[in-house]
Structures are given as structure tokens and as C-alpha cells.
């Protein structure tokens, strides 16, 4: 017995038992605000005169007591003016403009994922990885984008600040899968080659033509038309002679 105890002692001393063994799952984004040099309440933000005019138009759509209904379009307007991201100053400004408690604006801005609460690059590349795109090879597209931009990961920005890549959920362009979004434009029917081309032309400062990159017209059947192949008839055809 005593031998056993002697043997067992170093074992216990070596392997200290942890009290908590549950791993923590953390969010991919921060849902509280932290003051940083580039994002704090002291940085002033105000709509430019054109945007203020647009904002007034948006506000005018709603009854005056429901002014706060304009919060999402206004946040979007603010995000566009603020280089693609919604800083705390943007949110505070919109709260003031709509006479809302700032927290109500924060709630909206943190709820919707399309409001970026951290700065992004000049070109915001959003690669869809939802099921239809995934089945059509979006994993490869995402890998191509990431490796072509110097081996960054989804969620990161290139060192020169030109590109930010993120994975997004379905953008509703499943018939043209796989696809990615740069800014407001959809680039569809992608292959690794066309993806590289798109990235390259953005890097050169050009804007490639949005839409399907395979050359087909919107989401028409890529194997050619199977229905409605005849010439569509024009006005007056097949009518009584009186009406022709």
C-alpha cells in the first residue's frame, strides 16, 4: 500500500486537475464597442449635403412619429459615406438625426451583418458559400480569392488595404452559382480563372463587367434555349386585319 502511494504521488503532482474543462465558444465578431483611435465617439461624422438630402427623402417616407423606421436605410447611407463601414460616430449621428436612443441604433447595426462595424478595404469581396454555391464549387472560389490576394483568410484585409474578403450566406443568385459580390456588383458563374481575372482588374483599378462571367445571358440555360425558341411575335401580329 505504501509503495503504491509513493508511486502515485508524482503522478498526481504532475497532472493538475483543471476545475473547468469546458471550452469557451467565442463569437467571430465583437458585439460591444471598444474605443480605438479609428473608432471612437470623438470622431465627428455628418452627412454630406447630398446625403443629407437623400436622408430627408427617406425620412419623409414615414409618418413623423415613426421617424425611426428610417434607421436601416440611413445606416446604409452612412456606411456608404464612411468608406463602407459603420463607425460609432455614424450610429450616434443617425440616432440624433432620428431622435432615437443611441442603443436602439446599436441594436439594429449589430443585428444586421451587412453593417460592418470595423473598417474594410477599398473593395469588399463577399464570397457566397451557402449550399447551392458550395455544390457548384464555391470552396474553390474562396480559396482562389484568398490565395490570389496573398494568402489572407476570410474576414481579413490585404496589407495594402485594397481588398477585404468575407464569406457570406446566400445572396439569391443561386441560378448563377458560384458567385461573389464586390461592393454592390454580383460576379456570377465563376471559375477559378475568371475569379482571378476579376480580382486582377480590381487591383488595377478597373471595374470588370458585372454579371455572369461565362458569357451566358443572365440565368438563361447554359446549354441553349429549350423553350421559347421561336421569334417572339410583335405587336399586331396574329390580329384581325382591322387591328393590324
Amino acid at each position: 500500500m505504501s509503495l503504491l502511494r509513493c508511486l502515485s504521488r508524482p503522478v498526481f503532482a504532475g497532472a493538475r486537475r483543471q476545475i473547468s474543462t469546458t471550452a469557451a465558444t467565442r463569437s467571430d465578431a465583437l458585439f460591444v464597442h471598444r474605443d480605438t483611435p479609428y473608432n471612437n465617439t470623438k470622431i465627428a461624422f455628418e452627412f454630406s449635403p447630398e446625403n443629407l438630402k437623400k436622408a430627408q427623402q427617406v425620412i419623409a417616407r414615414y409618418p413623423p412619429q415613426y421617424k425611426k423606421a428610417a434607421v436601416i436605410p440611413l445606416l446604409d447611407l452612412g456606411q456608404r459615406q464612411n468608406k463602407g463601414w459603420t463607425s460609432i460616430s455614424v450610429m450616434d449621428y443617425i440616432a440624433k438625426l432620428l431622435e432615437m436612443t443611441p442603443m436602439r441604433v446599436y441594436e439594429v447595426a449589430t443585428f444586421y451583418t451587412m453593417f460592418n462595424r470595423e473598417p474594410i478595404g477599398q473593395h469588399f469581396v463577399q464570397v457566397c458559400t451557402t449550399t447551392p454555391c458550395m455544390l457548384r464549387g464555391s470552396t474553390e472560389i474562396l480559396d482562389t480569392v484568398c490565395s490570389h490576394l496573398g494568402g489572407i483568410h476570410a474576414g481579413q484585409t490585404t496589407k495594402d488595404g485594397k481588398f477585404t474578403v468575407i464569406e457570406v450566406e446566400c445572396q439569391g443568385a443561386c441560378s448563377n452559382a458560384p458567385m461573389l459580390v464586390v461592393g454592390d456588383d454580383f460576379y456570377e458563374d465563376l471559375t477559378p480563372e475568371t475569379t482571378k481575372k476579376i480580382i486582377d482588374s480590381f487591383a488595377r483599378g478597373e471595374v470588370p463587367k458585372p454579371g455572369p462571367q461565362s458569357g451566358r445571358q443572365t440565368s438563361e440555360n447554359s446549354a441553349g434555349l429549350t423553350a421559347l425558341t421561336s421569334k417572339p411575335y410583335g405587336p399586331g401580329e396574329f390580329c384581325q386585319p382591322d387591328f393590324q
Binding site: 465558444t25 463569437s27 465578431a29 458585439f31 460591444v32 464597442h33 474605443d35 465617439t41 460609432i88 436612443t101 443611441p102 442603443m103 436602439r104 446599436y106 441594436e107 449589430t110 443585428f111
Partner: peptide
């Protein structure tokens, strides 16, 4: 106290004031 609210969504939702 209208500064208290919920931020985030789904599993990330949390109670707080967003700013400190």
C-alpha cells in the same frame, strides 16, 4: 434607462449597452 438593450443576434446576442 434606454441605454440597455441587446446587441448581436442568434447565439451571439448579448445584453448590454454596447458602449461602456
Amino acid at each position: 434607462v434606454e441605454e440597455l438593450g441587446t446587441t448581436g443576434r442568434g447565439n451571439d446576442m448579448q445584453i448590454g449597452m454596447y458602449v461602456e
